[in-house]
Every structure is written in structure tokens, then in C-alpha cells.
Design a protein around this nucleic acid. Structure first.
Ligand SMILES: [Zn+2]
Ligand SMILES: [Zn+2]
Ligand SMILES: [Zn+2]
Ligand SMILES: [Zn+2]
Lengths: 124, 124
DNA sequence: GTTAATTTCGCAACACAGTTGCATAAATAT
DNA sequence: ATATTTATGCAACTGTGTTGCGAAATTAAC
């Protein structure tokens, strides 16, 4: 396990206390200069590796991060759906929505990226 | 409708004759210097607007383009699944796979980005 | 406690995808 | 033939993410 530093704890707390997924840029803002850009990238990488958070590629190509809630540390699955609002920009996890896919049997799935974009409840 | 230029026709042909989705970089390679980088970006933008091609954000965040086959020009839908191979890098459309999602009724879906990554038939 | 090994951090520099402004060129319209 | 519109090329720029490296901070060993 990697070390628990001040920056790491703070970043994890920011992500865990957010109802929506956050981008690196947003996290950096909230860190208010207490951490270097690159350090934030590396901490996020560590947190992903330790199954504390998961990464979602938004429809604009930018990576966002959200806390892992329903997935235990032993069985880690991120096959749930994400919704990205085109107005307010919020990226929400639908952890209850696991989509079942029918692919040819010789296809081996390693990673999911299931996101729909549109207007969220607030903006519609 | 935008104008039909040499570059536009060539790029459309490259995309239509490809069994997999292509990135801007790959298209630029196949254009062999006949077109400027920026021009290619703008032509792709036009082709998307005219419903000739659709854009897929790959798991690495890079945008890829594929020809529109099953969708007519009147009813345009891109709710199908994509598969991105982590070994050979190929991004394939599964136009027959339309995933059904159950979102809260006040959520309005505008755009789909349904991609799974892993090992394709050739690489598994 | 002092020293050595490991990990983290900050800074600079880089790679890459994508965008914008502007002048020129080409195609349409009058 | 002239004016208007659209497309192109070039340069410069933005934003996201990465890599190398030396310094600082932790942890382990003695
Ligand atoms: Zn919204
Ligand atoms: Zn999620
Ligand atoms: Zn493959
Ligand atoms: Zn497709």
C-alpha cells in the first residue's frame, strides 16, 4: 500500500464528499495551491490503483473521478452507467444501473465506459 | 449543405471503407499530406454535422470516427455499443447492440457513449 | 539516534489532441 | 466580371496528461 500523505487524504475526502464525479482541474481548484498539478495526477493514480476511486472518461474526453461506493475492495466492478449533463457539466454515477451486454464470446471485457450525455434533472 | 471538396470526399471514403473507427491522427496519415491538420478537423466536423459519420470517444479520451450505416439521415441514432481493443487498438462498432437504459424520467438523453474496452476476437 | 533505502513531491519540460484567428484561395451567386 | 460565401493553410495557442530528475519526507535498518 502506498503512503498516506496529507495531499492524498485531502483529495480522497474531496472526491468522497462530492455527489458528482470530479475532473483533475476541479480537484486542483479545491486544493487551493496546497498541491502541485503533477502530484495530484499521481495521487489520483494511486487512489485508482487502491480501488478507492474510479475513473470515468467524459463525453468531452476529459477524465473524471468518483468514489467507489457499491464495490467492495475484493470484487471491484465499474460496469455501471454514468450521466453527463451538457448544461451544468455534472457527471453522475448510476451505481444501480449495470448494463448487460451481449458480445461475441471471444471478446474479453476489461474496462467499461458507459456514459450518456444530455440534460440532468435540474437542467431539464 | 457544405461544399463537396476533394479533401472531404477523400476523408469520407477513408472512413467508409474502414471496418473500424479511425482517429484524426490515423486519417491524417492516410491523407499523406494532401490536407492540413486543421482542415481535416474541420472536414470531420462537417461530416458529423451532415450525419455521414459519428464520433466515438475512446477509453483513452481520443475521438474516433466511424461511418453511419444503420442510421438513416432522417432518424439519426448512435445508441449502439463500441468495443475498443487494448492490444491492437481497434475500435469497433456493434451497430446491432442497442443498450436499453432506465434513467429517471426527468433526464433527457442527447448523446450516447457506450464503449467497453478489452481484448477483441483476434487478440484474445 | 544516526544512517540508508524507499517513497513522495515540486519543478521544468515535454507530448499530444484539439481550437482560434487571420489572410489567402477557391467556389457560388449576382 | 464582380461580389459574396465558403474552405483552406499556417501560426499560434489552450488544455490535458506524462516524464525526468533532484530535493524533501517517510520508513526501515543498524
Ligand atoms: Zn445539469
Ligand atoms: Zn461511476
Ligand atoms: Zn484486438
Ligand atoms: Zn459506432
Amino acid at each position: 500500500m502506498s503512503r498516506n500523505t496529507v495531499g492524498k487524504s485531502k483529495i480522497l475526502e474531496i472526491i468522497q464528499s462530492s455527489p458528482i464525479a470530479l475532473s483533475h482541474a476541479t480537484i486542483q481548484e479545491q486544493m487551493k495551491g496546497t498541491c502541485d498539478r503533477v502530484t495530484i495526477y499521481r495521487i489520483l493514480e494511486r487512489l485508482v490503483k487502491e480501488n478507492e476511486i474510479h475513473r470515468i472518461v467524459n463525453v468531452n474526453g476529459v477524465v473524471n473521478f468518483a468514489a467507489c461506493k457499491s464495490c467492495s475492495h475484493s470484487s471491484h466492478h465499474h460496469d455501471h452507467l454514468h450521466f453527463s449533463c451538457t448544461t451544468c457539466g455534472e457527471l453522475t454515477c448510476f451505481e444501480d444501473q449495470s448494463v448487460d451486454l451481449k458480445l461475441p464470446s471471444n471478446f474479453i471485457i476489461q474496462e467499461y465506459q458507459l456514459t450518456v450525455a444530455g440534460l440532468c434533472g435540474k437542467c431539464s
